[in-house]
Simulated scan of single mutants.
Amino acid sequence: MSLIIQADSVSKIFQQRKRLPGLSGTLRGLLKPETVPVRAVEEISFAIRAGEAVGYLGPNGAGKSTMIKMLTGILAPSTGKVHVLGRQPVEERVANAREIGVVFGQRSQLWWDLPVSDSFDLARHIYRIDPARFAENRAEMVEMLALGSFLDRPVRQLSLGQRMRADIAMALLHGPKILFLDEPTIGLDVVAKDVVRKFLARINRQRGTTIILTTHDLQDIEEICPRLIMVDDGRLLFDGPLRSLRRSFGARRRLRLDFYTDPGPIWIGGARPVGSSGTQREFEVDEDGRSLIDLISALPPGTPLRDASLHEPGIEEVIRTHYQRRRA
């Protein structure tokens, strides 16, 4: 697969006005404002191939939305280069816009007082979509996202979940090669989130649409994106397969053993005792490849084992632990 997005040592610096304490509003207005640089993105590099689904993850203020705005041409990098489909987005915004779709969870592309179907028709004219292609894409979006029941309803009358589904459909009507999504499931209920996630995974798989997704909902990442890019304080922390995240951040599986009677000290190779309570013992397991059966088989013969469980840390637990360690 060819590279479709490249970021090479990209930084974005904003100038923030410095507050002058102890001055009245009138006097402050007479002085030349002093600014201080704020680094939102710092020396980030990555490359994304056509057809990938990539989660872009980080806490508030980590620079996620700033990076998305540079990739879509809304902002220009302060230093470094961004290439999307072989173009520098900020310099070729119109050409870039014809081949990408963008959904910002907090903002809508739909016309507030018009029916959804009218917004779709406006998109056809804006993007100059061939009528036959538009009809085909529209029918597919309506079916896959179950939009039929509210196509003729004004956008202002839609629920948040309905509006988000319509926004995603609108972003895909012109058949973009890349879909950028910034917090697409924010505020949605469980059912609406499930519909959006399944749809995004489906268009990535069936259409080969490249997806770049920023979110605070880690289940979005788990269900849609095999690859994760993780940032904090504007810097790149991790870039790789989601399955490698636990190993990269030192997360460990936990083995819990429950015995009929107190077994005394228990030692299992590759597992470190971390707790005991009565007839229960808990271990951290170092090797990802070892199964529950492998670990139980390592117990001494005759050990009065009653029950055993192996807990795999979810990505939310892994990331929360990592951020807590960084703050400490």
Rank of each mutant, 00 (worst) to 15 (best):
A166W: 08
H216F: 00
R252F: 14
I315T: 03
H174W: 11
S24G: 15
K81R: 14
L200I: 15
R138Y: 13
T66I: 05
L228I: 03
E34L: 09
R19S: 11
D194Y: 13
N137Q: 12
V196S: 07
Y56P: 02
R207N: 06
L75D: 08
L179C: 05
S65F: 01
L213C: 03
P273F: 01
M1C: 09
V142G: 14
R28Q: 14
D233C: 09
F180A: 12
R272E: 15
S2N: 11
R28F: 08
Q106T: 04
I4G: 06
D294G: 12
L122T: 05
M144E: 12
L158G: 05
E140D: 14
A40Y: 01
A201Y: 03
P154T: 11
K64G: 10
A76E: 10
R243I: 03
N60V: 00
S65P: 04
G86E: 04
I186Y: 09
L57A: 03
R325M: 06
I229H: 01
S244N: 09
L213F: 07
I5K: 05
L57E: 04
V285M: 08
R205K: 06
P33N: 10
N137E: 11
Q162V: 13
D294T: 14
P313N: 12
Q324D: 14
G187N: 12
F249T: 12
L160Y: 04
L255N: 05
K81W: 07
G80Y: 07
V10P: 05
I221M: 00
L310R: 03
L245K: 02
L110M: 07
L27R: 13
S248I: 06
S108W: 09
L295S: 01
R156A: 09
G63T: 14
V285W: 15
G275E: 01
F180D: 12
A123K: 03
G234V: 03
T79L: 02
R87Q: 08
E92H: 05
A62K: 02
V196M: 06
P226A: 04
A7K: 07
F238I: 09
S9E: 12
G289L: 13
R39T: 08
A47S: 13
V36M: 08
G270R: 11
I224S: 01
E312P: 00
S65E: 00
T279Q: 10
D288E: 14
A271L: 14
P304Y: 00
Q157S: 10
R227T: 01
D152G: 15
E140M: 13
D233N: 13
